[in-house]
Design a protein around this nucleic acid. Structure first.
Lengths: 215, 215
DNA sequence: ATCTGTGAACTCGTTCACAGCT
DNA sequence: AGCTGTGAACGAGTTCACAGAT
C-alpha cells in the first residue's frame, strides 16, 4: 500500500469527530457528499480518504456510521494507547493540559515538566508535574512516544533534543522556531504567530475566494 | 501578478523571524541556502518566495538582511496596523492574550470578549475585556478585521457568525469544528486535537523520513 | 436515479538546471 | 567558483468522469 499522507491523516481525524456527532444525532449511514459538506471538501476527496484506510461503503447506503467510525479509530489510534508528555507549564501548557484532560482515553497526557520549582511536584488538571531534570527518566519509564513543547522559543531546541534523546518519536511544537532534529522524528509545528499573520494578510486582501485546511 | 499563495505567506512570516535573529546576531547579508537551512526548505524555494514579493538580491552578497526584512514586513503588515479581537477567555484565550501582549505593535489584540461576567470589564494581559453582547459594537468601532476564536466547540459557529456580521474578514479558529461562513472570509484553523493525532500516528509508524510545515 | 470506487486528467506548489552576473 | 533569477520539468494531491452496483 502506498503510504498515507499527512493531509489524509488530518482529514481522517476530522471525519472521526464529524462521525461522532452524526452518531449522537442518530444517523446510521452517511454519503460521501454529506461528509464532504461538513468537512468543507469534495465528495471525491472523502471517498479517496476512506478508500485509503480500506473501508468500503455501498452505493445504496453510503457508509455505515458505526463501522466507518470504528475503521478510522482503529486506523488512527494505537489499541494499547499512547503516552504523551508535555513540557512547559506556562499559560499555554496549562491550557493544553486542561483541554486534553480526560478527553481521549487512548491518547492522554500522562506527565508534564517545567523548570520552575513552584509549578512542579503537584497535579494540574489531573496530570502529574515533574521537574525537567526527571524528563529522560520518566519518558523512558512510561515509554512515551509523543512530546508536546510549550516552552519559550529559546528553550525549545534544547527540550526537543532532550525529548529525542529520551526516545520520543513525534513532537507537537508550539514554540515559534523550527526544530532541528534527525528526520526519523516527526515534528508538527503549530505556530500561532504565523497563523495570525496569515489571517491578517488575507483579511486585508481577499474579496476573492480562498480556502484552507489545518494543518 | 499571480496572487501569492497561502503557503508562501506562511514561509515569509517564518523568514521574517529568522531574519530578526540574524540581524541581532549582526549578519548584514544572507544567502538563500542559509535561510533555507534555517527554515528547513530548499534554496530554490527561498528564492521563489522572495521573488514573489519583488525583492532582489545579488549574486555577490545574496540578500541584504535589513532590506529583505523591510520588504517582507511591508508586504505582510498593514502600515497603519490592524486591530484584532479575541473571543473566549478560558485557559487558551488567556494564554494567547499573554503570548501576544505587547509583541507585534502592528498586529495587536485590542479587545477580548467572554460570556462569563466574572471575566469581563477588566484588563487581562493589557487587553480590555468586554461582555460578548458588546462584540458587534466594539468590532465596528475599532474597525477590527481579524478575530480569534477560543470558545468551546459548541459556541464557535455562533461566535463566527457574529464576527462575520460585525465586519470581520479573517478568523483564526482554535475550536475543533469547521466553521461555515461565506467564502469571502478567510478562516485558518489551528486544531490542536488533529495535530496531536497526526503526531501520534506518525510517531508510531515512521522510521522512514517525512517532513511537514505549519500550517 | 443515485450512490461508490477508481483510472485518468489536471492543478499548483516544488525542484531542477542553467544562463547571467560578479 | 558561487551566487541569483527563472523557464521548464516534476510530482503530490485533488478533481473529473464514468463503469459498476443497487
Amino acid at each position: 500500500m502506498p503510504a498515507i499522507s499527512d493531509k489524509t491523516i488530518g482529514r481522517l481525524s476530522l471525519y472521526q469527530r464529524l462521525l461522532y456527532r452524526l452518531k449522537n444525532e442518530g444517523a446510521a449511514n452517511v454519503y460521501s457528499h454529506q461528509l464532504a459538506a461538513l468537512a468543507h471538501g469534495s465528495s471525491a476527496q472523502v471517498r479517496r480518504d476512506i478508500m485509503a484506510i480500506g473501508y468500503s461503503g455501498t452505493p445504496a447506503r453510503g457508509y455505515e456510521v458505526d463501522e466507518l467510525l470504528e475503521s478510522i479509530s482503529s486506523f488512527l489510534e494505537d489499541p494499547h494507547g499512547q503516552e504523551v508528555v508535555l513540557v512547559g507549564l506556562g499559560n499555554l501548557g496549562r491550557a493544553i493540559l486542561a483541554y486534553f484532560s480526560g478527553r481521549r482515553p487512548r491518547l492522554s497526557i500522562s506527565a508534564a515538566f517545567d523548570l520552575d520549582p513552584t509549578r512542579v511536584n503537584r497535579v494540574i488538571h489531573g496530570c502529574r508535574c515533574y521537574p525537567v531534570d526527571q524528563l529522560a527518566e520518566i519518558v523512558r519509564e512510561k515509554r512515551a512516544l509523543v512530546g508536546i513543547i510549550c516552552v519559550p522559543a529559546l528553550q525549545a531546541q534544547k527540550v526537543a533534543n532532550d525529548l529525542a534523546a529520551a526516545g520520543i518519536r513525534g513532537i507537537l511544537n508550539f514554540a515559534p522556531v523550527r526544530l532541528h532534529l534527525t528526520d526519523d522524528i516527526y515534528v508538527e509545528d503549530l505556530d500561532v504567530t504565523t497563523a495570525l499573520e496569515k489571517v491578517a494578510y488575507f483579511a486585508r486582501r481577499e474579496n476573492s475566494k480562498l480556502k484552507e485546511v489545518d494543518k
